[in-house]
Design a protein around this nucleic acid. Structure first.
Lengths: 269, 269
DNA sequence: TAGTGGTCTAGACCACACG
DNA sequence: GTGTGGTCTAGACCACTAC
């Protein structure tokens, strides 16, 4: 009864049953047989339909959930997701989350979870150019919403002076906009982009399933006059990381190069 | 026997058993109780140790696998992962994968999977500025290796002229280096970064577990003289996407801004 | 009360690695 | 052959939603 079911229309190659089922359901969603917002049959019914156990159905659904095709709601059912995607420019302006949200038709909102003075970790001290190893910094955790959907968790570190002076404003608004409005010009940044699966805690903060990919935007932003030769007297004003839902966000950039490295390449060809 | 085991040291709060077990194992790995490369007890033995079923252990291990702490090998066991991370600059030079690899001590290698003439999709035609809707392009799929570990799958599209002229070279080397060496200067690009969970096929190409986060680097690279006003006569020479393992790769950039948008912000405050 | 998804169990068979 | 992880089953209890 079990593996013989593979022959009734599922793929006959080596792929697992739950993968084959996942693909069938995915195709039904993409062709519109199941429309956005629509409820799928229950796990039990799907099991009957495909002739497999509920466990196998659950693995297939977990796959679709992680790819963003469906969302599950306990006690209610499995629903086809409506797609969204908000793009954030990496350079221009310097990560004004709120501006980007508004431009793309969403209402941006911030919920500050924590704002407190703590001792800087070694990494934060290095990024903020703190020579005192026991220096304190302000650590802020906040969640960004787009139309009531949590899309990102921001963990920000401020030097003590900035955090103390702007604590109230920082707890209410978006980081960059607040700093700029208070006269702190951020004109340079070092950033890196990465991706991790949502841990259990993150999955609860951002209302995503365990393991959903999150984009990790690490940044150190500087004020002052930067120098091209990477020296200069610029001064870090803030650093942190933004963990954003990959089903809602992406980062864009436009690049222009002069190609001083052409010689290098030619030499190593 | 089952849920009462929660009291023997596992978290007593609302989190699932497999999460609590996952955290315990993660801590043992991070503190060095299990060292990199070391084999963990078998799933059966772990089940006995924690007093849970094998299914629950498997969920815990799946979580650790996805976070990159362990890798599983059928018939051999569960092994603690040794960490790697290769960073790629987004701007300077323009994604010379091979150069970045070499600079960070890895031997870069390319395996070309496919290289064939196909009809351009609407998206590719738009990106390559093809006015003819039935135009053909060369489509290449290749895998990037760092010291024999597959770290990225690149899907590249070339205009017919470039692909036909450079087919042989393109099939052997890295895209950008090959183009530059053939006199095609790429001095501008539009890129975007995204993340998706590995599908079944991708997980096989890149030797990662199903659902592992992959970084998606979308790019359109231009040759010619670009104009600041986004017009100009620059010409797309290549477009595509690089899907890279997030446990091995990250993207970095340095940003400088002039802040012409300050006025805009002040107006909307 | 009935139905749903979330969690967990106990047991089975398979493919693969190793001795 | 023995042990391993990969897959799948059948059944249970729970928390939650809706009627």
């Amino acid at each position: 009864m079990t593996l013989s079911m593979v022959s009734i229309g599922l793929a006959a190659d080596g792929q697992p049953l739950h993968i084959a089922i996942s693909k069938q359901l995915k195709e039904k969603i993409e062709t519109g047989a199941y429309e956005p917002g629509e409820r799928l049959p229950s796990e039990f019914d799907l099991g009957v339909m495909f002739g497999v156990s509920r466990t196998t159905i659950r693995k297939a659904i977990a796959n679709l959930t992680q790819q963003g095709f469906v969302t599950t709601q306990r006690g209610r059912g499995i629903f086809v997701t409506e797609q969204h995607k908000i793009s954030f420019s990496m350079a221009n302006p310097l990560t004004f989350f709120d501006v980007a949200l508004k431009q793309q038709g969403y209402e941006g909102r911030v919920q500050s979870l924590r704002f407190q003075l703590t001792q800087a970790t070694a990494e934060v001290a290095r990024k903020l150019h703190l020579t005192d190893k026991t220096a304190e910094v302000y650590r802020q955790e906040k969640i960004y919403y787009a139309d009531d959907t949590p899309i990102a968790l921001d963990v920000v570190y401020y030097p003590k002076a900035i955090g103390a002076a702007l604590g109230d404003q920082l707890q209410q608004g978006f980081t960059y906009s607040t700093l700029v409005r208070q006269g702190i010009l951020l004109n340079a940044a070092k950033v890196s982009l990465d991706s991790i699966p949502a841990t259990y805690e993150l999955s609860e903060y951002l209302s995503v399933p365990l393991g959903m990919p999150l984009l990790v935007f690490n940044y150190v932003a500087y004020q002052g006059t930067p120098r091209r030769d990477s020296g200069g007297n610029r001064q870090p004003a803030v650093c942190g990381k933004t963990l954003s839902r990959s089903d809602w966000t992406c980062y864009t950039a436009e690049i222009e190069v002069d190609h001083p490295e052409l010689n290098f390449l030619a030499e190593n060809s």
